[in-house]
């Protein structure tokens, strides 16, 4: 298996608060990895350290063998290789649906207008939003916004997609439409890293589940192992808490 991302001894502190402690973690091409854990355990920070929205305090992050923390490394070009989907969608409010999916292609990848439009339309179809090309973000529902945000990230044709609780800000009836799109993507062989509280999704589509607790990876394994046979007591406690809350 080809390693896409390799993280060694990653740590991250905000002031005196150590949020990530000595994380070792790697992602193979084509893997779908779900990251679970209670709120504040450092899941978002881990994702954000991978695409450098947060600067790691220590350790090493390599992408396809290249050290991305090297000062000479082109962080803007690197970020186009990772698509990110946020909890709060974060669509560009001044652009309509189509243009949200084109602006990065045009300004960063320097694609032609025709190509950018064709690519954007391709991915808007994937997420089922091709009929809404003219709509502005404020005219869409949460589920629709998130599907556009996914199409925007896909339009950059990244190697890896990072999802940070993509359904947590949605009304319950809209969670399904977003998860459905993500399941399709997972099936298509895309490499995905998904922070989620949707245990059903994690069980069904992931190759690997990572459980984080207080800034460390407490346990990882395939979904059967984590959900049916966790070795760590804190994993068991967490799972019984979230599964009973449902």
């Amino acid at each position: 298996m080809e390693k896409v991302i390799d993280i060694q001894h990653l740590s991250k502190s905000f002031g005196a608060h150590e949020v990530l402690k000595d994380i070792d973690f790697s992602v193979d091409k084509g893997e779908v990895i779900c990251i679970i854990g209670s709120s504040g355990s450092g899941k978002s920070t881990l994702l954000r350290c991978i695409n450098l929205l947060e600067k790691p305090s220590g350790g090493k992050v390599t992408y396809k063998g290249k050290n991305i923390l090297d000062n000479k490394h082109d962080i803007y070009a690197y970020r186009t290789k990772l698509g990110m989907v946020f909890q709060q969608f974060n669509l560009f409010n001044n652009h309509n649906v189509l243009s949200n999916c084109m602006v990065g292609q045009l300004t960063v990848l320097k694609r032609s207008k025709e190509e950018a439009k064709a690519v954007a339309m391709k991915y808007l179809k994937v997420v089922g939003m091709e009929q809404y090309v003219n709509a502005k973000p404020r005219q869409l529902s949460g589920g629709q916004k998130q599907r556009v945000a996914i199409a925007r990230a896909l339009s950059m044709e990244p190697d890896v997609m990072l999802f940070d609780e993509p359904t947590s800000a949605l009304d319950p009836e809209m969670v399904g439409e977003v998860l459905k799109v993500m399941k399709e993507l997972a099936k298509s062989g895309l490499t995905m890293l998904v922070v989620t509280h949707e245990m059903g999704f994690a069980k069904e589509v992931s190759n690997r589940v990572v459980f984080m607790d207080k800034g460390v990876i407490a346990e990882e394994g395939n979904p059967e192992q984590i959900f049916n046979n966790p070795t760590e007591s804190r994993t068991r406690e967490f799972l019984s808490r979230v599964l009973n809350a449902k």
Partner: peptide, 15 residues
């Protein structure tokens, strides 16, 4: 302008 839009722009590689 909400911070999320800055982050989304950064995440697709905009300076």
């Amino acid at each position: 302008i909400d911070k999320g839009q800055f982050e989304a722009a950064a995440a697709i590689g905009m300076n």
